[in-house]
Amino acid sequence: MTHQPFEPTFRHLRLGTTLRTLRTQAGMTLEGAATAVGWQTPKLSKIENARQQVRPAEVTALLGVYGVTDPDAVTALENLARDARRRGWWQNYRAVVSRAYTDYISLEDEAERICEWSPLLVPGLLQTAAYARETIGAAASSTPPNEVAALAEVRQARQAVLSRPDRPLQFWAIVHEAALHHRFAIRPTVMREQLQRILDAAELPNVTVQVMPLDSTPHPGIVGGFSLVSFPGSIPDVVLVENLGGDIYLEGDATSPFTTAAQRISAAALSVEDSLVRITQLKEGHRK
């Protein structure tokens, strides 16, 4: 019988990284931790490096050795192990969605909170279908119309995390006002509908929207946009930084500067109440 080679998912990578961090925090060596749970050292090494699958019960055993007793943390990591090979809905779009993008959608699907600083576009979780099609088409002018439509569908499908019945995503979006002034010559109503979509989303108790005004004081966000993704339990935060060279993921201590930056960016932006007033004013400016 031929065995299929193990192909790690992004969940496997994050689980392995988290277990390694917890072991280090517990002051245990790889050999000591493996011995404590009755394993050979190579097995734990493979798990930490996402080269071998780990069962939820094995995760529970490791957490016991590491002294992790918080029920939320234990449950979160058990679920991560259980879902590591789960096929997400986004796999249906793998012909048009890059591996880096599927990695982010996977993070988004499991996240508890996301803070997104978006200086150029309305965040994907708040986009209308028309706005998504227009901006995707503009950014990738050589992309065939059918792929543009598929990518727009992906952005719409992602928004389901905001209305999950069991654990809706806590979403904090800080958007630069410049991103709210776009005009679309072929469909002049696109931006007005988009602004109304933001106002509607802001009524959800789990969605917070702030606008960075055009006349804001200097702040860390002038360097560029990012998304700070937080998870339940002891799973480390992840930061996504996008640029022309590709997506960059940061974890662990490397995310701390972004937590501080998000707080300073929020302080430089309009208050939530004033932000909604500004969005309403801009929407009225798009009236024909």
Score class of each variant (00 low, 15 high):
68 V>H: 08
64 G>T: 03
53 Q>H: 08
52 Q>P: 05
53 Q>I: 00
35 T>V: 12
35 T>G: 03
55 R>S: 14
59 V>G: 12
64 G>L: 04
38 G>L: 03
33 A>Q: 08
26 A>V: 02
25 Q>V: 00
23 R>V: 10
35 T>S: 07
46 K>M: 08
63 L>N: 08
39 W>A: 04
52 Q>M: 09
55 R>Y: 12
34 A>V: 13
41 T>N: 05
32 G>R: 14
29 T>K: 12
54 V>F: 05
50 A>W: 00
25 Q>L: 02
27 G>S: 00
50 A>I: 04
41 T>E: 10
44 L>W: 01
45 S>F: 03
45 S>D: 07
32 G>Y: 10
42 P>D: 03
49 N>R: 12
49 N>H: 11
31 E>R: 13
24 T>C: 06
63 L>G: 07
25 Q>C: 00
25 Q>E: 10
47 I>K: 01
41 T>Y: 01
64 G>D: 13
53 Q>D: 13
36 A>T: 13
49 N>D: 10
45 S>M: 06
35 T>M: 05
35 T>W: 02
60 T>R: 13
34 A>N: 07
26 A>H: 01
41 T>R: 13
43 K>R: 10
48 E>F: 02
44 L>D: 01
51 R>D: 10
44 L>K: 01
55 R>H: 13
57 A>K: 15
55 R>A: 15
68 V>P: 07
31 E>H: 13
30 L>K: 11
37 V>Q: 04
30 L>P: 08
67 G>E: 06
49 N>W: 00
48 E>M: 04
33 A>K: 09
68 V>L: 12
42 P>A: 02
36 A>C: 07
25 Q>T: 02
64 G>S: 10
24 T>V: 06
61 A>R: 15
39 W>P: 02
25 Q>G: 12
24 T>F: 06
33 A>W: 09
63 L>D: 05
51 R>Q: 15
46 K>P: 03
34 A>T: 14
36 A>V: 14
64 G>F: 01
29 T>L: 10
48 E>R: 05
52 Q>E: 14
58 E>D: 15
62 L>E: 08
55 R>V: 07
57 A>W: 13
